[in-house]
Amino acid sequence: MTTSINGLKVAHFAAFGPGRSGQYATVRDLIFAERKFGIDAQFIDCAVCPKCLKNEGCDGKKDGNIKTQTMDWATNADMFIRHSAIPIELEGMGKPIILCLHGRPENSYLLEKYGQIPVYSFIREVAHDERYKTIVTFWKEHLFYFKHLIPEKPVAYVPSMVNLEQYSPVGPVRNYSSRAGNPNIMIADMWREDTTPFNILFAAVKFIEKYCKTGRIHLYGVSSNKRDPIHIIINQLAKSGFLGDVCTLMPNMSEQYRAADFLITPHVIATRVVREALACGLPFISGTGNKYTSFSGDPRDVEGFADVINNAWCIIKDNEEIKLSVRSILI
């Protein structure tokens, strides 16, 4: 096995899905970062192809400089990094495994509580599995939780990252055309079990009604399931003229960040959306306690959050220097 960092072969197991999840984007950027240090980091697609019923890594799927590798390549790796599932036959090879926990602790708890994914049961199995050497979280705020949930294993914090070349204030800009507003308000969070943009969406509506009737809300990450009740809300708000773009997941999200005037999010950590927005110089308004912005409020207080949006907009509008100052938070 390779013993030096330079040339170390590392297999990252995750679901290949450009533009479909924050986890994929984080894994992609982690691979890029490792390669800069001379590590031979590769993406192993752990999803199953519906056509050949085999691992999709055999197809050599591409996303820029990322190309999925085969399971055969993984068998010769020095180390496995588990983001999603690892095939049982590879997990049993005796390779050292690092488990990356991408989910928020409360969301992971709710996934198991409601019978979806048994995250916590799996974590406790890993606690006594010698193949797993270290647990990694990408958020310092989560260290406390996991150190208590998995005291048997070392838990490391790796700062969540974003590709500053791909996400920057300079580049193509989304043309809203007839859907443009003033301001253009962006919401791009996924609707998760523990945190949804439900209340901040209505806070943005309140802001437009109360302070700025020319504003428009642009929604990204909306469920494609037409039975999801979010579509009832969207249809009504669209009829009233509050909405601009309404999309599921989109490629080239950097173009959307450059077009918006600001982002609103209920989150209090540097989620993928927050990191991408900051990298593009997009100011954001968050839930109380987010240390990456000076604009925050209780997202459950629709009236109060609308006031926070207005206070932020009064500072942000016509401020050309704010994009550079926002991006500097990441650098």
Rank of each mutant, 00 (worst) to 15 (best):
A85N: 13
K317M: 14
S108V: 09
C58V: 14
D78V: 13
D78K: 14
N76T: 09
N199L: 01
T70V: 03
T2S: 12
A238V: 01
F144D: 15
F80I: 02
A238M: 00
A188M: 12
D228E: 02
Q42R: 13
I217M: 02
E209I: 07
G304R: 02
V10N: 06
D63L: 13
T26I: 10
K67G: 06
E193G: 08
V158T: 05
G221I: 06
H142T: 09
V273G: 04
A259H: 04
V158F: 06
A203M: 02
T248H: 14
D228Q: 01
K206E: 10
N199K: 09
C247R: 15
I123P: 00
D245W: 04
T248F: 05
C100P: 01
Y157M: 05
V326P: 02
A260V: 03
Y176A: 08
P18R: 06
K323D: 00
G60K: 04
L110W: 08
P229L: 04
K67N: 07
D45M: 11
L90V: 09
I98K: 10
V48E: 15
I232A: 09
R275N: 11
R179N: 08
R216W: 01
V136E: 08
V136D: 04
G287D: 05
E112M: 03
N235V: 00
A238T: 13
K239T: 07
Y157Q: 10
R174H: 05
T195P: 00
K210F: 00
K133G: 09
S4P: 15
S224C: 07
Y220V: 00
E193H: 11
I285M: 03
F80W: 00
D298V: 13
N175V: 10
H267F: 11
D72H: 06
R179V: 03
